[in-house]
């Protein structure tokens, strides 16, 4: 069936089977392969994307359920010119090794910091406990997210 939604600010229209997950739709139909699939049963968090402002597991959402939604993937949180402050912080704190969990970490951290730029280490650990990283042991990831908070704090009113 046909489904229309917005990905990274651009409208898309895709013909899909109802059984297609949003993750597979993004990866294989829209060729946005930055979203990774690590378990397909809602545990690892690698496929996290942002739907209407909320971080969600795209393996636990059907593409047809995205009708009319605004979807943001790691590609939408990136630009070619420079790394974003969040990405720079990940690089500085060596918060990634093999890179497979990284897109899910970036989308999750972005959603968290957008809503809670004052979150503490406990909150970061709680939120990221839905994203598995097998390489880093998380220490660098938690530091990176904490260090990126300043970039998400609203500038004080002039």
């Amino acid at each position: 069936m046909a489904v229309q939604f917005e990905v990274n600010g651009k409208p898309v229209s895709v013909e899909v089977e109802p059984r297609l997950t949003l993750a597979d739709c993004l990866r294989h139909h829209l060729r946005l392969t930055g979203t990774h699939v690590g378990c397909e049963h809602g545990v690892c968090g690698a496929c996290t994307v942002i739907v209407n402002g909320d971080a969600v597991r795209s393996c636990l959402m059907l593409a047809v359920q995205a009708e009319g939604a605004k979807v943001t993937t790691v590609e939408g949180l990136s630009n070619d010119a420079d790394l974003t402050p969040l990405q720079k912080s990940f690089r500085k704190h060596h918060a990634l090794q093999c890179g497979f969990c990284t897109p899910g970490m970036i989308t999750t951290a972005h959603a968290l910091l957008s809503e809670e730029p004052d979150c503490d280490a406990d909150r970061v650990r709680e939120v990221l406990s839905g994203n598995i990283c097998r390489c880093t042991g998380y220490i660098g990831i938690v530091e990176a997210v904490l260090d990126a908070r300043s970039a998400y704090k609203k500038a004080p009113a002039p």
Partner: peptide, 12 residues
């Protein structure tokens, strides 16, 4: 490596 991984541009 991070420059591509952080942007979701690694090719697995």
């Amino acid at each position: 490596e991070d420059l591509r991984f952080l942007r979701g541009k690694g090719i697995y």
